[in-house]
């Protein structure tokens, strides 16, 4: 739990600063959008969090979002598949992608960076190919499906016209709770944490490390696929050429900010979600606060991540020197 104090603190500071600097920040509509964006990015960040915990990386998330996000409406509108079939196809596609990554990394011992970098290029290229680079969307049909992305749930005492919690928020809560239980309460979560630190020692303890790593890439691709569906439902009109572009980097940044070390073996789900929220508040701040030029968005985000990571490292060093001192006595 100690690990998320830092990120929670930074989040609150940025949140309050933004509220002070912009009068439109705390408006119900803006909050609703912020919660929605946080939910969407939170889901994909949790996925990559699992991969990072195994000391891997997944660069293909943005392209998987593009593939699934553009693929689902394409299957429904262009190929006129029925909803269950289309969902099944999309689900199978994400599982295949996760399995492919996992097997290449564990069985052929390829580096995760290389495998998923190729994925990043391939899935976007594929999507642009089969859609003919045409804009994809659901139009005004598929009401039930669109409710998943656009639906809002009223809070008691507040009229829905003023503020409603987006449905994806509930999806995030569900995903986060399940992920958290999986990581902290099951033997498989412990296996992931162990092999992320030291795969060899984990293997010497009888853990099927390969299977666990494949599982992490499956989870990551699966959540990226889910994210793809929710993202397309939100925008309802996506161009294969740039839909989901850079999202993998937002997800990785959120996971790292949330306490996942790229060296593997550490991270909390709550931290990752707060990391994702921080990223969205930052982007929101840059858009809303007049005197911050919008063009420097990446510079600000990059700087904040750097500060967060440096602060984390400093805290860790202090903690470890304390432990050394304690063990000397």
């Amino acid at each position: 739990m100690k690990k998320i104090y830092g990120i929670t603190g930074i989040f609150m500071v940025v949140f309050i600063l933004t509220a002070l600097m912009s009068s439109s920040f705390l408006t119900p509509y803006n909050m609703e959008r912020l919660i929605l964006r946080t939910s969407l990015f939170g889901i994909i960040s949790i996925g990559v969090g699992f991969v990072i915990i195994t000391s891997g990386i997944d660069l293909s998330i943005g392209s998987v979002i593009c593939l699934i996000g553009c693929g689902l409406p394409w299957l429904l509108t262009k190929l006129s598949l029925s909803m269950p079939i289309a969902i099944l196809v999309v689900l199978l596609a994400t599982l295949m992608i996760g399995l492919l990554h996992g097997l290449l990394i564990t069985k052929l011992k390829l580096q995760p960076f290389v495998v998923t970098l190729c994925g990043l290029l391939m899935y976007r290229g594929l999507t642009r190919g089969f859609t003919g680079d045409q804009t994809q969307g659901f139009g005004q049909v598929f009401k039930e499906l669109r409710w998943l992305g656009e639906g809002r749930v009223a809070l008691p005492g507040i009229p829905l016209e003023t503020f409603g919690l987006p449905v994806p928020f509930f999806i995030l809560v569900l995903v986060a709770i399940l992920a958290s239980i999986f990581l902290n309460r099951t033997i498989y979560g412990r296996y992931l944490l162990a092999l992320g630190r030291n795969e060899q020692a984990a293997r010497y303890s009888g853990i099927h490390t390969d299977k666990m790593i494949v599982l992490a890439y499956l989870i990551c691709a699966g959540l990226a696929g889910l994210g793809g569906v929710l993202f397309i439902l939100d925008v309802n009109s996506a161009q294969p050429v740039d839909f989901g572009n850079f999202y993998e980097l937002y997800a990785i940044a959120a996971a790292v900010l949330g306490g996942c070390s790229l060296r593997g073996g550490q991270g909390t789900i709550l931290g990752v979600v707060i990391g994702a929220a921080l990223m969205q508040v930052l982007r929101n701040m840059i858009t809303l606060v007049d005197w911050i030029p919008t063009h420097i968005e990446y510079a600000v985000i990059g700087a904040v991540i750097l500060v967060g990571v440096v602060a984390d490292e400093v805290v860790k060093r202090v903690a470890s020197s304390r432990q050394i001192a304690a063990s000397r006595q």
Binding site: R185, T186, I187, Y188, G189, R190, Y191, L193, A194, R197, N198, A201, A202, S205, G206, I207, G265, Q266
Partner: peptide, 24 residues
């Protein structure tokens, strides 16, 4: 696993045997 607690190191091999339907 040097960065893990003594307790977690010691249980690593027996987790599977002592699991409760997958839970620790």
């Amino acid at each position: 696993i040097l960065e893990m607690a003594i307790k977690e190191n010691m249980s690593l091999a027996s987790l599977r045997r002592d699991q409760r339907r997958g839970f620790l």
